[in-house]
Design a protein around this nucleic acid. Structure first.
Lengths: 288, 288
DNA sequence: ATGGGCGTTGCACAAGCTGCAACAAGATTT
DNA sequence: AAATCTTGTTGCAGCTTGTGCAACGCCCAT
């Protein structure tokens, strides 16, 4: 849209390939040297490109700083919430979002079940780290040595007969989870409650959060809940894409995403046809 | 130099602070909405900014990708990392690697302290250039006239009573640092935090980076930290040697500088006997 | 319904960008 | 050492291109 800016930005991927001098840049841009010079100078003033001692231009460290700052200010919860709500609308069950931090996994967001029977949980509360599906995903993503170290120093309370028994069993479970890219908790915390979970990944592929759908088996059987897995995974991936700042799938580079509609909409609603009971009052409000 | 590009680039740091809508952007840029729109569109087409479902703009995936490439081109980082990790393993404190670029000193790598009390810092963040030990080393290495010029145009915030007071004091400090080949920051940025730093030099002797060990004095006194100086210097020299293409110590003499094979190992571990406590939970806040 | 907020569009004007050509400074060759 | 080539830099005239205005449309809240 703006020729000048367009040209300037075209310099960046070019420099990403490696350092280049003024003439090379001008050549690749198909503009006069003086034009390229002015663009490079502007980029330089902003620290986006850096001038090497040999006068050639490179991408600058400032770029790195910008990206870093942006990532830090990214709020997974804010980004994820509409997707959680949508998922909840689709299946009616409790949806959680959790992050790992300092040997703990914390729920940071939640959309309440619309069924009368609900599971108990609280935003900000540490989850049962050895059994929760979201915890398994987040720990499974840690680098091997740390994963092992954490597994060793955890406690393994026997909430139920199906709770993880100890470090060995836990590490084995983590390996499986890591492999398959999703996790479950079938009665490991509360005898009658099951969960399925999927990871939300950042631009670098690391798991920044995990989300789960939980329901007591008086409402849906474990098998039925597992039927939601594809939807859960798809939702998690949609959040990941959004979190990484990727353009929505429909948009071929350059074009506009169109009317940009509005809501997340993971995909033209999934094959799962839920039977959400008459909505209870839902707690739209996030949390402290 | 180029007004249009200048304005477009000014949008980036603004969006790094968090998502913003068209009006906010136009406001901060002091331009008409339509102008801001065109700039944002151009940035959008290049994938530099991303449009959220709520129509607000934030930095996009391509910027992250570019930043990644930019930092990968800084091969010091790659070479140095194992040494930083080793140093951290030896002393338990936070280890930083920083480079100088365009009147700024940026952290480009970091290995976290294993003590519960940590200092705050962020990769990609510009450091307090007038007081940080790494900054002193990098600036001390500039040729005299430039060093003076930079010193003149810096600000000298008084973070603490021991912060550098102004250009004269700073230049004196730089001269001393240049002379002795290492630097400290004893409470110049945060009253309770000390650092010791040493330079990483390229084949031509110029400082290409600097590394530091930082610790709050509730953990170790300044004197104890200074005791680490020999180790820090030896590590920096090991990195310098490898960066300059010399075979890592382990390799048979005369061989290839090659893939650098295995582990760093600065020297048969130093006299410093650390007592790194097992990490406990600290109260770092999650996503707001 | 009505009004306000916000993004989007078309357009006339001139600001600013573009490319040219000449200049400067090193490096390389004769 | 002089000549020549290469590459970055500057000033400028012309006109492309970006700018701000005002009007429009859409959506949400009242």
């Amino acid at each position: 849209m703006s020729q000048t800016v367009d040209r300037a930005l075209s310099i960046l991927p070019l420099l990403a390939e490696g350092p280049a001098n003024l003439e090379q840049v001008a050549g690749r841009l198909q503009v006069h040297k003086s034009t390229a010079l002015r663009l490079l100078r502007t980029l330089h003033e902003h620290g986006i490109v850096h001038r090497q001692p040999d006068q050639r231009y490179r991408l600058g460290a400032r770029l790195f700083a910008l990206a870093q700052e942006a990532v830090e200010n990214l709020d997974i919860r804010e980004i994820a919430h509409p997707y959680l709500a949508e998922l909840n609308a689709a299946c009616g069950h409790t949806v959680h979002l959790a992050v790992y931090e300092e040997d703990e996994v914390l729920y940071i967001d939640k959309v309440e079940s619309r069924y009368p029977v609900r599971m108990y949980s609280r935003i900000g509360k540490p989850v049962a780290i050895t059994v929760a599906a979201v915890a398994k995903l987040l720990l499974a993503d840690l680098p091997e040595p740390e994963r092992r170290a954490v597994a060793e120093r955890l406690d393994y309370p026997r909430y139920t007969s199906r709770s993880t028994s100890g470090p060995a069993a836990f590490l084995a479970e983590l390996a499986k989870v890591r492999e398959q890219g999703w996790a479950t908790d079938l009665g490991g915390h509360e005898e009658s409650i099951n969960c399925v979970a999927a990871p939300v990944r950042g631009a670098d592929g690391r798991a920044v959060a995990a989300m789960s759908v939980s329901a007591p088996n008086v409402v849906v059987s474990a098998e039925e809940l597992l039927g939601l897995l594809p939807l859960v995974r798809r939702t998690a991936e949609a959040i990941s894409a959004e979190y990484a700042g990727q353009p929505p799938p429909g948009a071929p580079a350059g074009g506009f995403p169109g009317p940009a509609g509005a809501s997340p909409s993971v995909s033209p609603s999934p094959s799962v046809s839920p039977n959400p009971p008459p909505p209870r009052k839902s707690s739209k409000k996030a949390a402290p």
